[in-house]
Design a protein around this nucleic acid. Sequence first.
DNA 1: ACCGTTGTTGCATGGATTTGCGATAAACAA
DNA 2: TTGTTTATCGCAAATCCATGCAACAACGGT
Lengths: 142, 142
Amino acid sequence: MSGHESAVARLRSEGYRMTPQRLSVLDIVANRPGHIGADEVWNLAKEQHPYVDLATIYRTLQLLKRLGVVTEVVIGNKLHFELADHQTRHNHMVCSECYSVQTLSPAYLAEFSQRLQGEFGFTPDLDNITIGGVCSICHPPG
Amino acid sequence: MSGHESAVARLRSEGYRMTPQRLSVLDIVANRPGHIGADEVWNLAKEQHPYVDLATIYRTLQLLKRLGVVTEVVIGNKLHFELADHQTRHNHMVCSECYSVQTLSPAYLAEFSQRLQGEFGFTPDLDNITIGGVCSICHPPG
DNA sequence: ACCGTTGTTGCATGGATTTGCGATAAACAA
DNA sequence: TTGTTTATCGCAAATCCATGCAACAACGGT
């Protein structure tokens, strides 16, 4: 339904097996506009596979993250995930006081990333960087 | 002994109480060159205060982090801490494969930070940003 | 359609960190 | 010093996420 067919092919081509549990997680994340917590993925997944275990959800999300299919957003002490759409790539700025989330064009990090790559040979995992801080409402200037 | 006297004054002036447990944590982090894990802080703290609880260690470290006295480094799935010395400020690049840690001058993030501040009013918590990625050894070019 | 290989799952458990709560002890005034 | 206030602590329980293992099932070959 929602553009994750390529992700399925991706899994298969890398030697991973396509299980109903994985398909379900993929569907759920793909159909959710914005990010979603692991527990919420679990609740939705149980509607179709009542026996599915939370550990499977976590393992699947980590797998999809490693493959670049989903990206991770750190909100407070919880992890959220969203489909990695190369058309609408973005980073997240999370306020540590009100936990509001703003999105950010990856262009802001491009130069920084290239310098780390060029000067240190370090390849930052840009897609999964969450920038913590304080938003303008919680910490107004002056 | 090691320059954390100002931190003690800092706590007092903000209305926090100075307890032996907090002093101990402060001493331990201040005397450790480089970062140290919460569990290791606990083990060392127990030598002087056998009844100190791990929860107190965590609460103290989070408090010191909020006050800017220590900075946090995310290594794998564990948190490490180190004294925030304004003379030797630095960020950390952590390899997600071998967990090696490289330090980075905050100058690399300065321009980025200023843009977020200026364009979004978002004040990133630069001191506590850990940059995840893959180091040059684990992921050589070519 | 069946079989065998081996990646995956569910379950149970463990690790790291946080939180609620009653008891304790810093801080400060008298 | 003593008393009062209330931040902090120790303890226990909870939360979030990761992992070991035996049973299971996806997939390619027959």
